[in-house]
């Protein structure tokens, strides 16, 4: 039996059209909902029945693609992973992610984030060239556990919206990039540490973090970027003092 949408909730959505609007403003919609409806489904109901111009990113509806991150009642959340019934009686404020320029309505510009992810060399760099004839790389469960948590990052940017230091200084490398850095750095098959340390050993790298920990609190995949930053504060500190003793084969 299908549940009837006989309850309603008010969604206060931030609207901004760069062509016609001087600045963003809120618009309220009364949305009928059932107990299994997410905020994303609320937005989709608005787009389908009231205002087709409402703009937001979404894809998978199951907290895997990382597209629908937005501020829901001033907290960074995935719209697909947040149920309307938990926010009743409302009103629910829906705004684009903090700390990013708004492109239109709930869509933000992600260029800065993408550049930061690219800057940490987010791929495996083998220690030595290994021909296929030598067989696969084997890994023990412990070696896998060293980086597995960080591999769960879906690039949803909630941690950047939560991070007060990123809000303060947009040059700061930020939480997800550090988690992704550690995902490769902590991998026993990888030999790219020196390269990555050089990317984050400055004031705007790991040292821009003051261990607030909001990143780890808001992560929908339970990744712990603050832990990644701390590991790399230690790696960077050791590198600071031991760099003269080290032979570097990656440049």
């Amino acid at each position: 039996m299908t549940e009837r949408a006989d309850k309603t909730i008010e969604l206060r959505v931030l609207r901004y059209n760069p062509v016609t609007d001087e600045k963003p403003h809120h618009q309220s919609f009364t949305v009928p909902y059932t107990s299994d409806m997410s905020v994303l489904q609320g937005l989709q109901w608005i787009k389908d029945t009231i205002d087709g111009s409402l703009t937001y990113r979404w894809s998978c509806r199951m907290a895997i693609c990382g597209s629908c991150g937005m501020m829901i009642n001033a907290e960074p959340k995935l719209a697909c992973h947040t149920l309307l019934r938990d926010l009743a009686p409302g009103p629910v404020t829906v705004e684009p992610l903090n700390h990013f320029p708004i492109e239109r309505d709930l869509v933000v510009t992600v260029d800065d984030f993408v550049k930061k992810i690219e800057s940490v060399t987010p791929w495996l760099i083998p220690k030595h060239p290994k021909p296929v004839s030598e067989g696969p790389y084997n890994q023990t469960p412990a070696q896998m556990a060293a980086y597995e948590n960080f591999s769960a990052c879906i690039n949803c940017m909630l941690c950047y919206a939560a991070c007060p230091q990123y809000g303060e200084n947009p040059k700061f490398i930020g939480p997800a990039a550090m988690a992704i850095l550690q995902r490769y750095d902590g991998d026993s098959r990888d030999g790219g540490s020196a390269l990555r340390i050089d990317a984050v050993h400055g004031e705007d790298g790991v040292w821009g973090c003051t261990a607030v920990g909001a990143c780890s609190d808001v992560c929908p995949k339970a990744v712990d970027p603050m832990h990644a930053v701390n590991q790399n504060k230690m790696n960077t500190a050791l590198d600071y003092f031991l760099r003269f003793l080290k032979k570097r084969d990656t440049k």
Binding site: E118, S119, T121, L195, D198, A199, V200, H201, G202, E203, D204, G205, W207, K233, T236, A237, Y240, F241
Partner: peptide, 16 residues
């Protein structure tokens, strides 16, 4: 592409 290395911070001294 990896970007040019950032200037190394002296923070490790104070952080340790």
């Amino acid at each position: 592409m990896p970007h040019a290395p950032e200037k190394r911070s002296n923070a490790p001294i104070f952080w340790l």
